[in-house]
Computed example of a mutant assay.
Amino acid sequence: TDINTMGQGAQVVKVRDEYMPVVELERVFQVPRFEFNGTSPIMVVVEAEGSRVALMVDELLGQQQVVIKNLESNYRKVPNVSGATILGDGKVALILDTSGLVRRSRH
């Protein structure tokens, strides 16, 4: 209910008296959204290049210290992804390019 739609379908949310663009990661990466049985989506505010955006995410898993491998030098350039890491359980986690997502929200 806190998300407002502006001209041309752009969405914004008011956080502490500041309106910021909403970036829906399921649209950016073209993946289906996990259903949470009517619960409200979670938004994570990120700042890059002097601007803030609210990333709409499925869930928060926690915080970890990781070693990031550059994806472009080991594979190829992937839009909106800056790198990858291998988690303790052996799974690969992608690292989002927050600067790219902020730039994308401006257009």
Rank of each mutant, 00 (worst) to 15 (best):
T85F: 10
E47D: 14
V57F: 03
V53R: 01
E47H: 11
E59M: 09
Q65M: 09
A10V: 12
G62Y: 04
V92L: 15
L87E: 08
H107K: 11
L71C: 10
L71D: 03
F29V: 01
K14E: 15
M56I: 07
S82F: 01
S51H: 12
V102C: 01
R103W: 00
L87K: 07
R16N: 12
R103A: 12
P32E: 15
L25S: 08
E47L: 04
I68Q: 14
D97W: 03
I68N: 05
I68C: 08
R52E: 05
F36L: 12
Q64L: 14
T5E: 15
D58P: 02
Q11T: 08
V15D: 02
D2R: 13
A93G: 15
G88M: 14
M56R: 14
V12Q: 15
A10T: 10
P79R: 02
A10C: 09
G90Q: 04
F36S: 12
G38N: 02
D2W: 13
Q63C: 03
R103M: 01
D17Q: 11
Y19N: 08
T98Q: 04
K77V: 10
G38A: 05
Y19G: 05
L101Y: 02
G62W: 09
Q30E: 14
P32I: 08
Q30V: 02
V46M: 04
R27S: 08
A84M: 15
A48C: 03
Q30M: 08
I86L: 09
V102H: 08
S82L: 07
G7M: 13
V46Q: 06
V22W: 00
V15N: 10
M6V: 12
L94G: 06
R27V: 04
R52C: 11
A84F: 15
K77G: 03
V46L: 06
V102T: 03
K77W: 09
V53M: 00
Q30G: 06
T5G: 07
R52I: 00
V53Q: 00
S99I: 03
T1F: 13
F34A: 10
I3F: 06
G38K: 09
N70E: 15
D58V: 00
F34C: 09
N80G: 02
V78Q: 02
V81Q: 04
E26C: 14
M20L: 15
T98A: 10
V45Y: 02
L25R: 00
V67N: 14
R27G: 04
P32M: 14
R16I: 04
I3L: 05
A48K: 13
I95R: 00
E35I: 07
N70G: 11
L96I: 01
S82W: 04
D97N: 10
V102N: 03
T98N: 07
H107S: 12
R27A: 09
V67W: 10
D97R: 02
V53K: 00
A54P: 01
A48H: 14
E49T: 12
E26H: 15
Q11L: 05
V31N: 09
K77M: 06
M6W: 15
Q11I: 02
E18H: 07
D97K: 01
L60W: 14
S99V: 06
G100N: 08
I3Y: 04
N70C: 05
L87N: 06
G100I: 00
Q30W: 04
Q65A: 08
V102W: 02
K77C: 06
Q65C: 05
M20N: 08
E72V: 10
G100K: 02
I42K: 10
E47A: 10
I86T: 12
